[in-house]
């Protein structure tokens, strides 16, 4: 019976996926088309961009115009600093908290853990008004640290690291203790190395998230010296009258380029990272 079933399966596997492939490809083409058109527009003159003539002359002029009309290097620097500050803060705080939740028994721990998980729903995005007041009160308005600090105690990061630490075999910890490690030594030498894939996944997700974040940075920044790329890009598009679609496309491509190139190069790792971060 088995032997009969398997050869039957063969042609089925072969004929059906072609239809699937067509559907999958059509959807994929629709999905990348906005990006493809932006690339098209960015490399053509404004007239050529909208004519859709395949032989329209190519130009880099849009990139030059876009680059000259806003302090992009500063925005790039700000975004880089911002994602770095956030990541360092998150890794430190979430490691300590995740370790406490995973390996310390103390009264009140489980209640606190539920409270931490609640933060997944009390989003920083929703509390923009009061957080703005809080940041101003603390004198952190219009500082990179001020943009980053509300995200540092990430419930998501704490949760992920707690899970990772929990899956570390207790024997490893005991072995390290026999060799004279204290709590910090155990954390540093045993748990952190064991959770390396989780750290990598979390770091990729964090950098991608905060590279792209917009609303909160818009609210707490007020000057070129702190504004991240996304806010810079929105201001750029806002001067609609003078700026044409080709230049906006060029600017948009410049902003997404670093993350995008990173994504293309490390595609597998990125998707794995999102997977790992998503599976609870």
């Amino acid at each position: 019976m088995n032997a009969a079933a398997i050869p039957q399966q063969k042609p089925k596997l072969f004929s059906l996926p072609t239809l699937d492939a067509i559907g999958a490809w059509l959807l994929a083409i629709v999905w990348v088309s906005p990006l493809v058109f932006a690339v098209w527009a960015a490399f053509h003159t404004p007239d050529g961009a909208l004519s859709f003539k395949l032989n329209a002359p190519l130009t880099l002029e849009n990139f030059r115009v876009a680059w000259d009309s806003a302090p992009w290097p500063r925005y790039f620097l700000n975004t880089t600093l911002l994602v770095t500050v956030i990541l360092i803060g998150q890794l430190t705080l979430c490691t300590l908290a995740g370790f406490a939740f995973a390996r310390f028994q103390f009264p009140g721990r489980d209640v606190i853990f539920i409270l931490v998980l609640l933060q997944l729903f009390i989003l920083p995005e929703v509390l923009i008004v009061e957080n703005y007041v809080m940041i101003s009160r603390l004198g952190l308005f219009d500082t990179i640290f001020g943009i980053g600090v509300p995200y540092m105690a990430s419930a998501f990061g704490i949760f992920l690291l707690r899970q990772a630490f929990k899956s570390v075999p207790q024997e490893l910890e005991e072995a390290a203790r026999v060799e004279g490690c204290g709590w910090f030594g155990v954390l540093w030498r045993v748990y952190i190395p064991a959770a390396r894939p989780t750290y990598l996944a979390y770091a990729l997700v964090s950098v991608a998230t905060h590279w792209n974040n917009f609303l909160w940075p818009l609210i707490v920044t007020n000057s070129t010296s702190t504004r991240p790329l996304t806010v810079g890009l929105s201001l750029f598009g806002a001067t609609e009258s003078g700026v044409n679609i080709a230049v906006v496309s060029a600017a948009t491509l410049m902003v997404i380029a670093p993350l995008f190139v990173g994504f293309i190069l490390f595609q597998r790792q990125f998707i794995q990272a999102f997977l790992r971060a998503g599976i609870r």
Binding site: A28, V248, T252
Partner: peptide, 24 residues
């Protein structure tokens, strides 16, 4: 390619996505 195409918009800032769609 199919996987990457589906996932691509996720990597873009919403602001940039909106700019791309203005063109549409």
């Amino acid at each position: 390619f199919v996987r990457a195409a589906y996932f691509t918009p996720t990597m873009l800032p919403m602001i940039a996505a909106a700019n791309l769609w203005l063109f549409f």
